[in-house]
């Protein structure tokens, strides 16, 4: 397949629906470390009322051949129900949340608050010498915000990693993981 001769790398946002059992996260992570795949972001949480299924969202990058491998390797894990490459299968939304602590006083403190407002970050904790901002958005937006805070007293960051869904009426259960 011509696509596989192409050596350019791309980023892929992949969602995986898994049986919520012990060991599945270790298997997924072991797959990435054991086979040397990149892993830029990974989130996991139960998504069904009865807690039977969890959704893993991960961001990885590689050539078309490597990404196809990653999906095939995930798909053959026993506890995996479905693998969906959101990047490839159509438009999707990916969001991430971060808590950002800024310790500053005076002009820097005021400036950080001003920037936070433009980014629609919320102040979720405040003392006279510090803020904790909560910001939600694309990973790029979070990166930009955190970058701007660097000169303004940025002292600690906690990010969730991305959550992602396909746009429109498509769902992971209606999407087919390609063979």
């Amino acid at each position: 397949m011509s696509g596989y001769q192409d050596n350019t790398t791309r980023t892929a946002t992949i969602s995986v629906l898994v049986e919520n059992e012990a060991g599945i996260l270790a298997r997924v992570i072991g797959l990435f470390t054991g086979r040397g795949y990149n892993i830029d972001s990974l989130t996991v949480a139960p998504v069904e009322a009865d807690g039977a299924l969890s959704r893993i969202n991960l961001v990885t990058s590689g050539t078309a051949m490597v990404i196809a491998q990653i999906k095939a390797q995930l798909d053959r894990l026993v506890q995996v129900h479905r693998v969906s490459d959101l990047t490839e299968e159509g438009p999707h939304i990916a969001r991430e949340m971060a808590l950002v602590k800024v310790i500053a006083t005076g002009e820097k403190r005021v400036e950080s608050l001003r920037i936070a407002e433009t980014f629609r970050a919320r102040v979720v904790d405040t003392t006279t010498g510090s803020f904790v901002f909560e910001i939600t958005g694309t990973s790029d937006k979070l990166d930009a915000f955190i970058d701007l805070m660097r000169d303004l007293g940025l002292s600690e960051v906690s990010r969730t990693g991305i959550a992602a869904l396909a746009r429109g009426a498509r769902t992971i259960s209606s999407l087919h993981s390609e063979h």
Binding site: M1, Y4, Q5, M65, A68, Q69, A72, Q73, D75, R76, H179
Partner: peptide, 12 residues
């Protein structure tokens, strides 16, 4: 096994 296909050698 899908993962055996196009792992080392691209196939048509």
């Amino acid at each position: 096994d899908t993962s055996s296909i196009n792992k080392n050698v691209p196939v048509e």
